[in-house]
């Protein structure tokens, strides 16, 4: 890659992850990501990109680099051991007949 291209990438605004709460009482859900020079502008960009059709009442942003993600290469050791532990589901209780709607 040429030096020019490297410089452009270096000068690019950081990436932010956007979380939107669709209405009071619900949790914030990941909506997508965007570029912005700082946190304040990330929120404003998110307002313009992700809430202009009334999608939300609250916005969280976090710089993408601060998100630590699990390693897909470790999927087997991370998740497979749970697959045969059916006793971790609360399905082995004898419920009294009086309890309905469980």
């Amino acid at each position: 890659m040429t030096n020019d291209k490297l410089n452009i990438i270096k000068n690019e605004w950081p990436l932010w992850e956007v979380f939107i709460r669709s209405k009071a009482g619900l949790d914030h859900k990941h909506a997508g990501s965007l570029h912005a020079p700082d946190a304040q502008m990330a929120i404003e960009n998110a307002r313009d990109v992700y809430t202009r059709r009334m999608e939300g009442v609250s916005i969280w942003v976090v710089e993408s680099k601060h998100i630590q993600a699990s390693d897909p290469g470790q999927s087997e050791s991370m998740y497979d051991p749970a697959s045969d532990k059916i006793y971790r589901h609360p399905t082995f209780y004898d419920l009294p007949d009086e309890v309905k709607y469980m």
Partner: peptide, 11 residues
Amino acid sequence: PILEQDIALTN
């Protein structure tokens, strides 16, 4: 200049 500001100005 960037997608986000393009949308902001159009709004």
